[in-house]
Design a protein around this nucleic acid. Structure first.
Length: 359
DNA sequence: ACTCTGGCTCAAGACGCT
DNA sequence: GCCTCTTGAGCCAGAGT
DNA sequence: AGCGTCC
């Protein structure tokens, strides 16, 4: 996901950054400096790449594919008749992450000495397993599904950029369940009803209604039964709506077990000359910048071992206003009952163990 | 009057100098 | 054999209560 | 904080 956002956001004059041979470098630029920042803040990141999507997702993926093609057409059209702004707008929408982008990011991580794993399927699910097993301190992702996959802690907006808008959020699954007064099974059912990648949403059921339905009926089985037997026909379950399959994916996703040898991660010193070869010689990065970045990495490999444990995050108490605000939105609706802890970005942070990043 | 959903649009990263 | 997945927030209209 | 630049 972050590769995607780098491709969309890292631009100049409406174009992605490129080497002199015309190859895109936006993803490397984004990866390199963000990872550097993270390491510089005492965190030892582990990246997780998405594997093959589960079959249940193919319907959704087909839709996205269609949308992407549509955007490409609009892009072509804009190039003929539209303004420069329109061309740029549609250009962003046509962005696709390729195998090459992925492989270059992995090569970059290897040279930086940062470990990664390619998940059998969903990266979020793999993140959750590793966090659950204590291989990492938390799973970092923008996706709430990470909690549904049973990660004990989710970090959102884990970036240490100076001009970051959103504060880092640390969300604990146990507190969330406590706040909702639900067990994990109900939470999974709630998330499915709320709308997940695997199933179409149920029309007219938004966050509030979803929460109420699960509260009133306890399980999705009962909710579906209620909806179908409702004489007023207020809601309609979509034709093809295999919620049991979705639930099964959340409960038993295809993941690499944490004790698998592949999950024996190591954080190593950067290969400075390799980085120079790759980023400077091949991609045209500025050599001084790359070398000083590599130096920072090297320094942190040493100091990171002797983890200085200070308070990692500083909690900011929620005001009543903020609570009200949260009532609105859907993910946040969940997050609301969920007790989230907002973190102050400006304070320096340390991880106890290792923070865990999702690609 | 209030609540809720759904449709719409937009913007999206990080650095370093001033 | 192709093809590596957009997403969230803010705003507003309109239906439902 | 704003803004040009990174490649």
């Amino acid at each position: 996901m972050s590769i995607y956002s780098f491709l969309v956001a890292v631009r100049s004059d409406g174009q992605q950054l490129m080497s002199d041979t015309g190859e895109t470098t936006s993803h490397l630029m984004g990866m390199f400096y963000r990872t550097l920042r993270i390491v510089d803040n005492g965190i030892k990141p582990l990246y997780v790449f998405d594997g093959a999507p589960p079959k249940l997702k193919s319907g959704e993926l087909a839709k996205r594919f269609a949308r992407k093609n549509e955007a490409s057409e609009q892009h072509e059209e804009a190039k003929e008749t539209g303004t420069a702004e329109e061309v740029e707008k549609f250009s962003r929408r046509t962005v696709r992450v390729t195998r090459e982008h992925n492989e270059e990011c992995r090569r970059l991580l290897r040279l930086m000495g940062i470990p990664f794993i390619v998940a059998p399927t969903e990266a979020e699910a793999q993140c959750a397993v590793l966090a659950r097993a204590g291989k990492v301190y938390a799973a970092a992702s923008e996706d709430m599904d990470t909690l549904t996959f049973d990660s004990p802690i989710l970090l959102r907006h884990l970036t240490f950029s100076e001009q970051r808008k959103e504060p880092i959020q640390e969300i604990h699954l146990d507190k969330t369940l406590e706040g909702l007064n639900m067990d994990r099974k109900q939470f999974i059912d709630l998330c499915i009803l709320l709308g997940c990648d695997y199933l179409d949403p149920v029309p007219k059921i938004g966050p509030n209604t979803a929460l109420k339905l699960i509260r009133d009926h306890g399980t999705l089985e009962k909710v579906v039964e209620f909806i179908e037997s409702d004489p007023k026909k207020k809601y309609a379950i979509p034709e093809d709506w295999p919620y049991q399959d979705a639930r099964e994916l959340f409960l038993h996703p295809d993941v690499r077990s944490a004790d698998d040898p592949e999950c024996d991660f190591k954080w190593e010193a950067p290969d400075v000359e390799g980085l120079v070869q790759f980023l400077v010689n091949e991609k045209g990065f500025n050599e001084d910048r790359v070398r000083s970045a590599a130096q920072k990495l090297q320094k942190n490999v040493k100091t990171a071992q002797q983890s200085r444990l200070e308070g990692f995050f500083k909690a900011i108490p929620k005001t009543e206003d903020q609570k009200k605000d949260l009532k609105r939105k859907h993910e946040e609706k969940v997050a609301d009952a969920k007790k989230k802890k907002k973190e102050d970005a400006k304070t320096k942070k340390e991880t106890k163990a290792k923070a865990h990043l999702n690609s």
